[in-house]
């Protein structure tokens, strides 16, 4: 028996919109810790890890660990039927091949339930070790989205370089080149507008912009994004989900041929 009641149902809607471009089908794992997902994109270039901690739900019942395979497009179709202010409850029974999403309007005058078919998904679970990163950049998520969008009109890849001067995003394409430098500005009045750069060692890595742009679908989840970089390791692009957890995207770098 599984029953998860999320008062801020819009969070689940935003989570789905954040990941469904990258991943088509995925297993949602439910345990005492929370509701989580780990999945690679079909090319095995990027990985998404989601955690919604049990404490963040108003009611969280999960009698035993359960894994539910879902089509994220179908799940998104159902969650789009929930109002932004609705309370969403996810219900499942042991051995059942369906999951139910219940939507309650804030005034309790409209209650809907949508039953979705589950699917069997073979997926490998990867162990992600804790790593010390050479550089950690925190910046407004909307600014990062703007930079990825702007650069992708010039080139296909972005070089992210961190020095003590700040973080530089560069691209080149047939029509020319572009460089955008963001400097640390932690003295701004609003913390959500701050850019901070922690650097232990200078880093410079190349990534496909197509994936970076896909990660920025998570922008509505958080005002800030954290980009963790180490030479020759995947970048981690993290959007924290207020009080509940995170969506983390891992992207393998491109290297010189």
């Amino acid at each position: 028996m599984l029953e998860l009641r999320l008062v801020q149902g819009s969070l689940l809607k935003k989570v789905l919109e954040a990941i469904r471009e990258l991943v088509n089908d995925a297993n949602f794992d439910c345990s005492a810790t929370g509701f989580s997902l780990q999945a690679m994109d079909s090319s095995h270039v990027a990985l998404v890890a989601l955690l919604l901690r049990s404490e963040g739900f108003e009611h969280y019942r999960c009698d035993r660990n359960i894994s539910m395979g879902m089509s994220l497009n179908n799940m998104a179709k159902m969650l789009r039927c929930a109002g932004n202010d609705d309370i969403i409850t996810v219900k499942g029974d042991d051995g059942s091949d369906t999951v139910t999403f219940m939507f309650e309007s804030p005034t309790q005058d409209k209650i809907s339930d949508f039953e979705m078919k589950l699917m069997d998904i073979d997926s490998e679970h990867l162990g992600i070790p804790e790593a010390e990163y050479h550089a950690i950049v925190r910046m407004p998520s909307a600014e990062f989205a703007r930079i990825c969008k702007d650069l992708s009109s010039i080139g296909d890849t972005v070089v992210i370089s961190v020095t003590k001067e700040g973080v530089k995003f560069s691209t080149k394409g047939d029509i020319g080149t572009a460089n955008i430098v963001c400097r640390q500005n932690s003295s701004v009045d609003k913390p959500e507008e701050a850019t901070t750069v922690e650097m232990n060692e200078p880093v410079s890595l190349t990534f496909a912009l197509r994936y970076m742009n896909s990660f920025t679908k998570a922008t509505p989840l958080s005002n800030q994004v954290t980009i963790s970089l180490s030479n020759e390791l995947p970048v981690v692009v993290e959007y924290k989900i207020a009080e509940m957890g995170y969506v983390r995207f891992y992207l393998a770098p491109k290297i010189e041929e």
Binding site: V45, H125, L126, T157, L233, Y250, A252, P253, E256, E257
Partner: peptide, 14 residues
């Protein structure tokens, strides 16, 4: 533009 590495090179299957 460089050679794209795969993500599963970096993590082990658990």
């Amino acid at each position: 533009d460089g050679y794209q590495l795969n993500i599963d090179l970096f993590f082990t299957i658990t």
